[in-house]
Design a protein around this nucleic acid. Structure first.
Lengths: 243, 243
DNA sequence: GATTTTTTTTGATGTGGATCAAGTCTTCGG
DNA sequence: CCGAAGACTTGATCCACATCAAAAAAAATC
């Protein structure tokens, strides 16, 4: 149950995942020496589900890289809690806090058994100062993150909860390239991510039956996306996370 | 009324504002030669109120710097429109779109007579590639922007509209360092920024009278912030835009 | 595989906040 | 100064969505 880091319990070298990490856009263009230094300073750890890796407000001591599993970024205020984002392999999170050497703005927990690399923030900042290719990669990554959050805000402010759900389903359809897919998180968390109550999500799914959306547990199938698109009006300036 | 750029109608050199621009964190550490090249490529323009400078979806051809006046960043979707942010001198906007060479995600309009410097995006990207100090400044700026948007999202998802309003007022109080201040935008725009209708904002202000909030036109005065803080529970992880 | 626990669904009800419709107050151009 | 246009307020109504309560389903535990 202890969520504190168990140093020594895991191997300190990141060998097994090294290629995959090196392949991340963030690290791909980095100087080899800088990259190796970063890896040497960092370590990889396995976590069981439902472990709180990060608590918002704490100082950002580590940059995290999800190697396997699923991480939920969430926030609390005044006894309320909402899910902000889901992070999947292979990508980093809380880069901005690391760069600014500020407090985490979001908490993070594992949703399933997960493997995470932790890179000390000061080493990231040092590499950032010495390796220009790395600094540029960080810029691009941050600009990307920024734009995703802006899109998310537009989604929240401009759309109703039903519209957000449908656009979410359409994004999943495009991401998986299939008319059938599994929700990759609990419905309660999806509801929170979409900014609605679980009950309301349940009813929203029901309202989509006439549009050919079938829900069976976490499995979703879509008959005809056209109907949904007419309803939800997806827009690349909100729904395309790649540009 | 034409919102297109009137090239040539203005001087091409940015002399008068040069010191102020150079003082921006984004440009402060830049190499002199790179800085001068950027300035030479860019130009400064005056705009009347209510001019749409940028339309979302267009390609980000220029990085903008507000030198005077007020700029509203807003977004449209499906005949709805919301205000996303307000930009005041001296700061830049749409840096992320410039870096990623992607489409603008937000539109921009002048709220009052404004003076804006336009720096061609390709020159910004070129300087970014050649000047490491500049690349680092951009990273810090973007990380800051990212964190502001995340805070904004938390504000939206975790708080009611009344709580958002009160926390907004408390932020203004802190920013101005005074218990009395003027709203620096129309109430309708404030409402949109806070994610509520103008009518609801009007009623929210009324609900704050028992808490010692006096509203006269755009002038606000606060008797005792303690009552408001008890009500709205401001939190640096949402309301402090500096960290 | 039976029992407990958690999640999801369903129904009833309540409320925040939007919308509609006037009316009032400001601002601004003449 | 006046009139018109726009901004703000107020009241009435409506709707989206949250909350509460409880049943049903699914998952976890033994």
């Amino acid at each position: 149950m202890s969520s504190t880091l168990k140093l020594g319990a895991e191997n300190n070298m990141a060998e097994p995942d090294s290629d995959e990490i090196r392949g991340l856009k963030l690290f791909a263009e980095m100087e080899q020496t800088q990259y190796e230094r970063l890896l040497r300073a960092s370590y990889v750890q396995n976590f069981p589900p439902q472990i709180e890796l990060i608590t918002e407000g704490d100082n950002a001591d580590f940059l995290h890289v999800v190697l396997a599993g699923t991480i939920d970024l969430f926030s609390r205020w005044n006894d309320r809690e909402v899910s902000m984002a889901t992070v999947r392999p292979v990508s980093t999170f809380i880069l901005a806090a690391t760069i600014r050497n500020g407090p985490y703005l979001m908490s993070a927990r594992t949703l399933e058994k997960s493997r995470v690399m932790l890179i000390p923030s000061e080493d990231v900042r040092a590499a950032f100062d010495e390796d220009n290719a790395f600094a540029r990669a960080i810029v691009k990554e941050l600009a990307q993150c920024y734009r995703v959050v802006v899109k998310n805000t537009k989604d929240l402010k401009l759309r109703t909860s039903l519209e957000r759900l449908v656009n979410y389903l359409l994004r999943q359809k495009n991401r998986t390239g299939s008319f059938e897919f599994d929700l990759n998180m609990e419905k309660r968390r999806l509801a929170s991510f979409l900014g609605m109550s679980p009950e309301n999500l349940s009813r929203a799914f029901k309202r989509l039956e006439p549009y050919g959306v079938k829900v069976s547990g976490s499995h979703i199938s879509i008959d005809d996306p056209n109907d949904l698109e007419t309803l939800a009006k997806p827009n690349p300036l909100i729904d395309d996370y790649t540009t």
